[in-house]
Simulated assay, not measured.
Amino acid sequence: MADVEVAGLGVAGSLLAAELARRGFRVIGFDPVARYEKPCGEQVTLEPSFAKLLETLDVIKSVVREVDILIDSEHMTSVSLKGAPKWVIIDKPRLVAGLRDEAEGLGVTVVRSSWPGPGKAAVSVDARGPYSVSSLSSVLALRLIAKVNRWNPETAWLDFRPEMGGLYWVFPYDTDGRLVNAGLGLLGVRDVSDLRMRAEKYLREKFGGFEVIDLKGAPIAVFSPVRLRSGHVLRVGEAAGLVLAWSGEGNRPALLSSRALAEVLSRLGSDDLNLVAEAYSRSIGDLVKLTTMSRALTYLTFSMSSSRSLMRALPGWFWTLYVRQELGLNDIAKALAEAVESANHIKPSEPT
Rank of each mutant, 00 (worst) to 15 (best):
S307V: 01
M76K: 12
A17R: 07
F207T: 04
K120Y: 15
R267K: 15
T77P: 00
P253S: 01
Y299D: 11
A337G: 09
S137I: 03
S138T: 15
S349P: 06
S294F: 10
V170P: 02
R112I: 05
P85H: 03
N344H: 14
S230P: 00
K61W: 05
P48V: 05
E104V: 11
E55R: 14
T298S: 12
E5C: 04
F223Y: 13
D126R: 01
K201N: 12
L275F: 08
E338D: 07
K120E: 15
S49H: 08
P130N: 01
G188A: 00
A221S: 13
E55S: 12
G250P: 01
V64F: 08
L310N: 12
H345L: 13
L310I: 13
P130R: 00
F210D: 02
R295I: 02
A34Y: 06
F223D: 11
R26G: 08
G166V: 06
G241R: 02
I284V: 14
P253K: 00
S124N: 09
P118A: 11
G83H: 02
D271Q: 15
V288T: 07
S132Q: 04
T109I: 13
R282W: 09
E74S: 05
V110N: 05
Y36E: 01
M164L: 13
L228Y: 01
R190G: 11
T175R: 15
A277I: 06
A218V: 05
V64T: 10
D331F: 01
F318K: 00
N251Y: 12
G250I: 06
V67S: 05
R161Q: 15
S342D: 10
V222T: 13
L70Q: 06
G119K: 04
P116D: 04
R196G: 03
V67M: 08
E200M: 03
G183A: 04
L327T: 00
A34L: 15
D194T: 12
T298P: 01
P48N: 03
T292D: 12
A84T: 01
V180N: 08
K289L: 15
L20M: 06
L287C: 05
V243H: 09
L300G: 00
V226D: 11
E154N: 14
V288R: 08
S193K: 10
P348H: 07
A335R: 03
P116L: 02
V212G: 05
S134E: 08
L95Q: 01
V96P: 09
E205F: 14
D214H: 15
Y36N: 00
V276Y: 08
L54W: 09
Y173M: 12
N152G: 06
L184I: 02
V64P: 10
F160G: 00
